[in-house]
Nucleic acid binder design. Structure first.
Lengths: 233, 233, 233, 233
DNA sequence: CATGAATGAGTGTTCATTCAT
DNA sequence: CATGAATGAACACTCATTCAT
């Protein structure tokens, strides 16, 4: 799917890449970089290893990305921030109850982000934000703020339609965000190794969190949607 | 007294002697290391800085810890002195509603762990679990499982007393855990830098989460405990 | 017309063909290279920048010059097209006092060489002579010696006509040469950056030097201190 | 001689070197650095080579000098700028004619700077000033300005005592400076290779220049050609 | 025991050079 | 002929680790 065609290019489109016909190279590099960044962290990832995994030389990498930092930013754009435009669209076009919208959002996030390697990026940022303030600021602007705005809209819609009770939206956002980020972090850290007894089924986890949110946000329906949390997908 | 210095060593010299009589030095080193590892992550922490903060030379550090990796492991292990025994006691002795018990637990955790340096340990584990699987396993058994058990007990008490509706306890635990860990990590990473607009007031955050849990867990009270979220402390 | 392309090559292919029929390309490259070598020095000049300024690709540059070093040598050699023949003519035809001749020479040099890009060549040679001894030797025979001879003739003319007092011509040449070369180098280096206060007006500078030479060379001066220059130490 | 004790330390005294008893190391490094910088230029000199020539490892060099740039600055301070204090003293204490003072200065400069490797530094700066504006600014402040001031004082003294005729001091400085710098540059570039025919005897050269200056600066000469310096073009 | 000087492998980045198209 | 994508050898600088004192 030509998702990337609609990506909003926030920077001058990669200072280097010129020819359109051979975008395979940057793509492979971005994939390799995502893998390694998520696996080893930003600092511990060596650019040469990224290049090797993409099957090119170190010099070639710098042909497409002017620095390690730009490479990372490109990874974030490719996997996270570049998708908000589409998501905002989907939210705006969504017809149905805000509860369904919220459910749709969570499970959609899970499918497109949470269950993929992309969910390693938030974990990475949490781990390394302190050491790379430039990247932290970038992430703040490109991911956190759009994400928060997205959730805010949903909550405001719910409050406006009287589905949700009035709330402090700022902390309402955290009520939605925390479970998602926790899930992402868990999968990429403690959950991925040695928690073999009870592997935390994401579907069940998200259903539980969603059920909880419904009750918490719910305005009048006291003990309602506890039955059919099954994910429609 | 250095009696043992004159005794013939009957055991093969382990690479690092952790003599018990002078724990002052290792203690200061471990404290300094905790600070720095939490603040900057494993890779970005320089052993020299750890030594400086502990007031000793780099060489001395290596006298006590044979490598940076060993230092890191020691830091994590050292800070896992189980407080769970005490907490389990407190829980068992607790008289009052399970809702109050839950509230007590969260705010207590915040005061004793979340708001202190100790909350850096979970952050460390989340960040570095991938690179130190043995430590992760250790953390799993020493912290995760006891913690989960503690929360499980609370939930089971609530269900038993019909305060909480029946639930899948396994995922109920995550409903409680996720907001706490998210708070701890957020404060140590993205929340501490460049989120200048709204610094996430922990009290408000925990109240919101608690309110949410109460609604979610609540069995019959549809719109109840929304009044007294004020932290008793 | 590419006739020669179809002819069998009777000579061993030199690594670089410098065909005369399309000197446009090498010419532009040499001009661009001169600019950049003078401005930034040999090491700091990137061949890609040279190619860009000449409007061709990096690969094309290497089509004409087998290496950066060869390019540099070509730049220096190319710009040593002896103007000395013409100057010698002018000097020989010059009618007037030798003082005027000397003045004419200095200001003429300034106009044709010193103030133009050509003054970059002496700077290049001074800067890089150590790294390119062959070039230095070449420069020595092609520029230094003819130049010295030219100045020698002027001085000898002055001495012959009794305008100048007798002198060791060899060092008299340096008296004329030093100020000129100093001016050329100064403008291309320290004088061009950060000497913001007083940008060294070349006219004034040359006038001052010339005035000095006139006094120094002047024959009639009564109490010339030419006797005891011996260094006291 | 404890020259260095009187050096004005313009920066916080070398951020690293702490123990006073082992200054051998920095000294050897500075000597090696001077050698190589002069021989190969700033950019082309590899710090590892400096370290090797000093008999230490690359890491050790960075123990004493925090960067290549600081190393270079230290070399300049050690060999040039650090000596102005002493020279200014000598000038102020000098008793005798200003002509003798000027002669003393030139020959003294030759002995202490011109004839040593230190004279390679001005050449180096001329060659690389464009590429390292930081260094150029440093050199401007630490060497050129003090040097100019020193010469200005001499000239002003001569004018004040009526030994020298009135002059534009700014360009008078260049009259003194140009021959010295030319000599330094010549020795380190074209003069050092392949000019084997006539090796430019520095004593003779300086005497000739000095003689010239004396005549040029001389006050009493009756028919000074100061009138027609106007450029005929 | 404690030090801190010394080390050298490793990291991000640059750039002359090559070569398939 | 001309291109520009690809390369890999360097380089400045860092930092965990060692060891003589």
């Amino acid at each position: 799917m030509p998702d990337s065609d609609t990506l909003p290019r926030t920077q001058a489109d990669g200072p280097i890449r010129r020819s359109r016909r051979k975008d395979a190279r940057p793509g492979e590099l971005l994939a390799a970089a995502l893998d390694l960044f998520v696996e080893k962290g930003y600092a511990a990832t060596r650019v040469e290893e990224v290049a090797q995994r993409a099957g090119v030389s170190k010099g070639t990498l710098f042909l497409y990305f002017s620095s390690k930092e730009e490479l990372f930013k490109a990874v974030v754009r490719e996997n996270l921030s570049g998708r908000f435009a589409q998501w905002n669209d989907e939210i705006e076009r969504f017809e149905g109850s805000t509860r369904d919208m919220l459910r749709y959002c969570l499970f959609n996030w899970w499918e497109r982000i949470g269950s993929t390697k992309a969910s390693g990026i938030p974990k990475l940022m949490m781990s390394e934000a302190h050491n790379f303030p430039e990247l932290a600021k970038f992430y703040q602007t490109e991911v956190i703020q759009p994400g928060n705005t997205l959730i805010e809209r949903i909550l405001q819609r719910g409050v406006a339609s009287a589905e949700f009770r009035p709330m402090d939206i700022t902390y309402g956002v955290y009520l939605v965000l925390a479970p998602m980020l926790f899930l992402a972090m868990w999968r990429h850290s403690l959950g991925s190794c040695c928690t073999n007894h009870q592997p935390l089924d994401p579907q069940k986890y998200l259903n539980a969190q969603l059920d909880m949110l419904m009750h918490g946000f719910g305005a009048e329906t006291p003990h309602s949607l506890t039955s059919n949390q099954s994910h429609p997908t």
